[in-house]
């Protein structure tokens, strides 16, 4: 029973390894020589410099360079950022927390809104469906842009702190922080909402007609028992898979939202790093986003595994 989960775990590790290979390739392929710049870096010990040079030495075999890079990546050491003059690790830690916060808030918002809206019946439900299909046809970056534009136009009516250059300064106050988060999180949630709504409505409709649910109905079981013990488990499977898939699309969406709303997250960092040719940060950012995505999928798989007894036995 455990072995299928172990296989899944091994699979994730394999993906991570492949991503690391991809990142390493990106690092090697990046144009420009940054050693000359690096040597001028003040806070860098000669020891670190030597190890970095070893990693990048074109004379040492590529496998060795890759192994060295992996080893330091395992310790969370992605080298030095040239643009920010600090270790990439310190830079990332804060940014990842911010991105997780934003994505988490967006995810929760979307699911809450989705669950709320999917309980509607009759005419409001039709309106919701129309609204969802309209939202569905606006890509995330466009939606974020539009939301920001609307907010800016309404600025006189409801002053919201938007796009301040250094939000950390004002983060001392809790309410301020929530207001800071509200708009980008809304942008994320609205982008993800149509997908959630679609799956919620479709999932419950399909579950109503599942053979086991029909059978429970024909046996004359009380409606409450049918709902909680038959329909809900039946509907859960696709929703859990959606939850796992959603993390990837949320991360992609968060990039543009962060840039647009000035939210200091991973995506914004990555963009700045690209514009400033800060290869170490680019690679570390890509690697960490992949890590988040793989962990999210693994979490969804674990939930599925706990929920569906058939999966616990399926071989790989």
């Amino acid at each position: 029973m455990i072995s299928s989960l172990a296989t899944r775990l091994a699979h994730s590790l394999g993906s991570l390894l492949a991503v690391s290979l991809l990142c390493f390739a990106l690092l090697r392929a990046a144009p420009g020589d940054y050693f000359t710049t690096l040597r001028l870096e003040p806070g860098l010990s000669p020891q670190t410099l030597r190890s970095i040079q070893q990693q990048a030495d074109p004379r040492s075999p590529i496998v060795r360079r890759y192994a060295l890079w992996c080893a330091s990546a395992l310790h969370g050491d992605f080298g030095q950022s040239l643009a920010y003059h600090m270790p990439v690790r310190a830079l990332l830690a804060e940014r990842i927390a911010n991105t997780l916060l934003l994505s988490g808030a967006g995810l929760c918002g979307a699911w809450l809104l989705g669950l709320l809206l999917s309980t509607l019946r009759g005419r409001p439900a039709a309106l919701v469906r129309l609204f969802a299909s309209l939202l569905w046809s606006i890509p995330d970056p466009v939606l974020a842009f539009l939301l920001l534009w609307t907010a800016l136009r309404l600025h006189a009516l409801a002053p919201l702190p938007i796009g301040t250059t250094s939000p950390t300064a004002s983060w001392t106050q809790w309410s301020n922080f929530v207001r800071q988060l509200a708009l980008p999180a809304l942008a994320m949630a609205l982008g993800y909402l149509p997908l959630v709504l679609r799956h919620l409505q479709g999932g419950f409709d399909a579950a109503q007609h599942a053979p086991a649910v029909e059978a429970a109905h024909m046996h004359g079981l009380p409606p409450r028992i049918v709902l909680f013990r038959y329909i809900l488990p039946e509907a859960a499977n696709p929703l859990i898979s959606l939850f796992g898939l959603g993390i990837g699309s949320l991360l992609s969406a968060s990039l543009f939202v962060e840039v647009l709303f000035g939210w200091p997250g991973l995506g914004q960092l990555l963009l700045n790093a690209i514009l400033m040719r800060d290869t170490n940060v680019v690679v570390a950012g890509v690697f960490c986003s992949a890590l988040l995505l793989i962990l999210g999928n693994l979490l969804a798989d674990l939930l599925l595994w706990l929920h569906d007894p058939r999966l616990r036995e399926a071989a790989s």
Binding site: P211, A212, V213, E214, A216, P233
Partner: peptide, 14 residues
């Protein structure tokens, strides 16, 4: 009531 496809008529999750 007994169904034609008994296996499919039991909920797979319980």
């Amino acid at each position: 009531f007994i169904f034609q496809d008994p296996a499919g008529r039991l909920s797979p999750f319980r």
